[in-house]
Design a protein around this nucleic acid. Sequence first.
DNA 1: ACCTGAACACCGTTCAAGT
DNA 2: ACCTGAACACCGTTCAAGT
Lengths: 233, 233
Amino acid sequence: MSPKKATTGPAMPGAVWLRERPPRRGQHGLTRERIAAEVVSQLDRVGLDGLNLRALAAALDVHATTLYWHVAVRDDLLDLAVDAVFGEMPLPSEPAHDWVDDVRAFMHNLRTALLSHPWSGALASSRPLLGPEALARSEFVYAALTRAGFAGGELTAAAAAVSNLVIGSVAAEASWQHDGEAAARQAVHEHLRVNSHTYPAMAELSPHADDWAAQFAQSVEFLIAGLAVKARP
Amino acid sequence: MSPKKATTGPAMPGAVWLRERPPRRGQHGLTRERIAAEVVSQLDRVGLDGLNLRALAAALDVHATTLYWHVAVRDDLLDLAVDAVFGEMPLPSEPAHDWVDDVRAFMHNLRTALLSHPWSGALASSRPLLGPEALARSEFVYAALTRAGFAGGELTAAAAAVSNLVIGSVAAEASWQHDGEAAARQAVHEHLRVNSHTYPAMAELSPHADDWAAQFAQSVEFLIAGLAVKARP
DNA sequence: ACCTGAACACCGTTCAAGT
DNA sequence: ACCTGAACACCGTTCAAGT
């Protein structure tokens, strides 16, 4: 059983961060940080579906059931891992001269961090991001958008749009990253061409629209242009 | 075992749609459509983690192993379910006068459809959307953005931005929809207030910024404004 | 306070066999 | 062509007990 009373149900996503205090280092020097790092490395190797408590515990030189002292449910491990990924994203010590540069850098840096751990996009999109590293990055965006002149509901909406566009884009991109990406892309393209009567606009797409980075950069500029229009100077 | 040779590995997400031909109705009148409908209703009741092949099969008056004639792996069922949800989204028979109206309607309609099945946001963000219903909706957006003057890489980027912002937003919103949403929101707000030194901008947020619909509408307008700026008339 | 060890319930998937 | 039935391997989680 885990220590400290939970303020919300243990099954709730993101709940690890809402509990009183994390356990300290024990006899085996097991800490949340060491666990998080190992989860990240396991996920990098075996993917989301491959994560296994027994193998994870073994890598930490501990028994599977021991993990339940540090964590309430398996999903808590995923929250720890996602926040660790956010921790890899650079966080400028001071804001840029122009808020646009901060927002643009944030979007590209977040994408890079998430893409370097392909499993993290799916998690970032489906679980509340309440870890300290994620919150620190959010704060940075809020600050930049505040300087842009946004406040109240508009500020929240702008920050949400920025984060959600990045996370949505990365999750979509990562969902294609498999051994069969090329084959799948080819199959889809053929399917669109054959059914060009039902998909006239999409059938015209080039088969090699696989420059994910350029497409993302363009998406970013679309949103930023809209924010610039609506910003109160 | 499933029929027909797969064009890509069976483990690949979205692969159901890339296989030659779906099985026809069998002795029990089991079809992909009936299966998909039952998966949707089960997911609505028990959620993503609660879906269980034995219970699903029982509801279809069939044995669990029978499902493997119609589907290669469990995940295929999720792809069927997501496309069924896309099928619930209204699809205008003819385009509006102004492309902006089409894009705006698309974004709001997609959000509504996905939110009415809270599990679908996480799936839509993490699996390729290659089903016929999803493709038909994509085609509609491509057509609207083509009329806006977008083409080539810009067109792809614009369409991606539109879809990814909606799906990212819905996934984020759905990740909060739990019994403990109110408690969690309160806990986060308190945490930000207590640590207002590290989170000065976020600490100023009102505790009841929970008008998801209004916030989404605002996000939509930000992106649309940016698209309008970049559109070639 | 942190970790062990045994045990439970469950669940996706396989495969050979039926009609 | 579609469905059954038995069986396998695996895995998250519990709980009482150790130090």
